[in-house]
Design a binder for these strands. Structure first.
Length: 274
DNA sequence: AAAACACCCTGCCTGC
DNA sequence: TGCAGGCAGGGTGTTT
């Protein structure tokens, strides 16, 4: 599932290939993507066609492709099964390919997404997109312990729901939240405001799991591949996610799985007490 | 106002 | 062997 480390890995893989390339055309499958919304091809073409890509980076889980026009660019959200690759134009397109940017020099930037939870949109400028403007601080660059403490203290939500809310902290999904809470020894159902005093440890844990995920090039459970089509290696480093019934690597107790808000939650009942 | 929940989608896996 | 049903969890819109 593309969370911050997976999007970062894709951005790092795409950046050297895309930088300096000119977009010549944009194609769409015609199928709607996220929330049954059609892709606004006209807007994509207006921003991208004839322009040169200057920068490829990430904000939270959003991939940003900036063009030469000041601040303008394309934003891609990978949803659950989205894939972004640069491939030769003559190479066969993967199933569920929905948006294709033709590049000068013969390559194509292709967005494929089996479940169509992802989306692609234009921003003029990117910063004006409401979804980006609403994002909370990036835990690797814009967050410190006092700020996290204040954010936690202001929320009545369970700490797991707090961390999944992109308006609070940007980039965490179900996998890395489970891992971070385990490392910080915080039970997922703990009210956020009661976890505020442990903000320093929680921030350390968040950074450790995200940096580990990036170092291992992302977590591949089933669908995720990087910009080169390679799986990530982080799944073997997971300590609680998907390990229900297995022994805790720290204390040996059996990892539990429960469902909160319709989402699977994994934790060690001994290391993470309420 | 914030929190809880339903919903979109497809592929894979399980159980009958 | 075939098929129904459950599950995966991103974000958003609606309800509580």
């Amino acid at each position: 599932m593309p969370e911050l480390p997976e999007v970062e890995t894709i951005a790092r893989g795409l950046a050297p290939v895309l930088r300096g390339r000119r977009v010549e055309a944009v194609w769409g499958s015609g199928l709607p993507l996220h929330l049954n919304r059609p892709v606004d091809l006209r807007a994509l073409r207006a921003v991208a066609v004839g322009r040169t890509i200057r920068r490829v980076h990430r904000r939270g889980k959003y991939l940003l492709i900036e063009v030469e026009e000041a601040g303008a660019g394309i934003v891609v959200h990978l949803g659950m099964t989205g894939r972004l690759r640069v491939q030769p134009a003559e190479a066969p397109r993967a199933p569920h390919t929905h948006v294709v940017f033709t590049l000068d020099g013969g390559g194509e930037l292709r967005f494929a997404d089996a479940r169509r939870f992802g989306w692609v949109a234009a921003g003029t400028p990117l910063a004006a997109l409401a979804v980006l403007a609403a994002l909370g601080p990036d835990p690797l660059s814009d967050l410190d312990a006092p700020r996290l403490r204040d954010l936690l203290a202001a929320s009545r939500a369970p700490v797991k729901a707090f961390l999944l809310d992109q308006r609070r902290v940007a980039g965490l999904g179900n996998i890395y939240v489970a891992e971070a809470l385990f490392r910080a020894r915080i039970h997922p159902a703990t009210p956020a405001r009661r976890a505020a005093s442990r903000a320093p440890a929680l921030l350390d844990a968040i950074r450790a799991v995200l940096e580990g995920g990036i170092a291992r090039r992302g977590t591949t459970l089933r669908d995720y591949v990087d910009a080169d089509g390679n799986s990530g290696d982080n799944a073997r480093a997971l300590l609680v996610y998907g390990r229900q019934g297995g022994p805790c690597r720290r204390c040996g107790a059996l990892i539990r799985r429960r469902v909160d808000g319709g989402r699977a939650t994994f934790f060690c009942p001994k290391c993470q007490r309420r």
